Simulated scan of single mutants.
Amino acid sequence: MADGSQESVPRRLVVLISGSGTNLQAIIDALNTPSLPNAQIVCVLSNRKAAYGLTRATNAGIPTQYLALQPYLKANPGKSREDYDIEVARIVVRQKPDAVVLAGWMHVLSEGFLDVLGGARVLDGEEKVEKPIPVINLHPALPGAFDGASAIERAYEAFHRGEIEHSGVMVHRVVKEVDRGEPLIVRTVEIKKGEPIEAFEERLHQVEWEIIVEGANKVLDEAVPSS
Rank of each mutant, 00 (worst) to 15 (best):
N137V: 00
P225C: 06
P37V: 10
M170P: 04
K176I: 13
T58Q: 10
I152K: 10
H107K: 10
N47R: 01
L114Q: 05
I91S: 11
G119R: 00
V224A: 13
Q95K: 15
V224G: 04
V14A: 01
A216G: 12
G104H: 05
I197H: 01
P196M: 09
R161V: 15
R12P: 03
E130W: 02
I91T: 11
Q95W: 05
Q65D: 14
A151Y: 01
N32M: 05
Q70T: 06
V101N: 11
L16G: 15
T22W: 09
D3F: 07
E163N: 05
S18N: 07
A149M: 10
L45W: 03
I152G: 07
G148I: 03
L67V: 11
L24I: 11
E190H: 05
T33C: 08
G194D: 13
A89S: 07
A50Y: 12
Q6H: 13
S150P: 00
A51L: 04
S46C: 08
N217F: 11
A99R: 12
K96D: 08
K176N: 12
V174F: 01
G118R: 05
R180K: 11
E87S: 10
C43P: 02
I164T: 04
Q206M: 11
R94Y: 06
V93R: 08
L123A: 02
G61F: 06
V88H: 02
L220F: 15
G119E: 00
S167Y: 00
V174T: 03
R203E: 03
G53E: 13
V9W: 05
V169I: 15
